[in-house]
Design a protein around this nucleic acid. Structure first.
Lengths: 133, 133
DNA sequence: AAAAGTACGTTATAACGTTACAAAATAATC
DNA sequence: GATTATTTTGTAACGTTATAACGTACTTTT
């Protein structure tokens, strides 16, 4: 996939970020590079989302760069989001696939895309809380 | 849990609905019952969400009445949403729990709440598409 | 170079959600 | 039962997130 200049900017900004960024947050960070309106961000995001170079995390209304290697198949991504530090991670375990096929078998529902987001405490923050007690 | 009049109205409207409703959609439907501003809807939704009588489906920015029996424990709800008819269903299978505990074991992430939403074709719509081919 | 397509910037607006404040209703205390 | 306190309510303004509409500039193809 060939990226335009604006798409490269947005993707780079998301890769630099340590947590999901909102579109308007991206806009602020990219003003210095000539961006001036939300539409530009959303326009750049669209094909990035389409091609799975970026994912949207619904529960925080934010966008993250995909952390997979380039040839990743992106079957059904799942995310963890730490409530205390904002850190996010992707995971795609066997168990996610199991859950999805179970839904198909038990309810007859055929999923095309999924939103799987776990909120809680990342290992570091959990440890930190533990220590402070 | 004791409900106020407005909360009862909102809950009843969601129970009548066949698909997730947005807050402003709820407002339109409840104007005849005296509702006049979005804040009334959000205020009524808040405790309903808190007590799991209503769930929010992030990926469609909509609200649904909980379909569980009253004594349900609501551990980690998951939803299916049909892309073609909008119909939604709750499910809470063993496999969902397995997936969550797998995340804990493999990554050390301790989930407190989850957003699990499957988009695709419900059995009825899948059949309909099949027939039309 | 003309035509067609794509990406772009700008502005406006839609859709979703929150905050602030005062009036009304309900419950608690005397 | 009157008085006070608390909760719920209506109204209005505001904040955030996302899209629509428009015309221009730049490629690519022919």
């Amino acid at each position: 996939m060939r990226l335009t200049e604006n798409q490269r900017c947005v993707l780079a900004a998301l890769r630099r970020a340590k947590r999901p960024l909102g579109a308007y947050e991206l806009l602020e960070r990219l003003r210095s590079q000539g961006f001036s309106a939300a539409t530009q961000i959303y326009r750049a995001l669209e094909p990035l989302l389409e091609h799975d170079l970026v994912h949207r995390i619904e529960s925080v209304k934010g966008y993250v760069a995909c952390s997979c290697p380039d040839d990743c198949q992106h079957a059904h991504m799942a995310f963890t989001v730490c409530e205390s530090c904002g850190r996010h991670d992707e995971f795609a375990t066997e168990e996610v696939e199991d859950m999805i096929s179970a839904s198909l078998e038990k309810t007859g529902f055929a999923p095309a895309s999924t939103t799987i987001e776990l909120h809680g405490a990342c290992p570091d923050c959990a440890r930190r809380v533990d220590r402070s007690r």
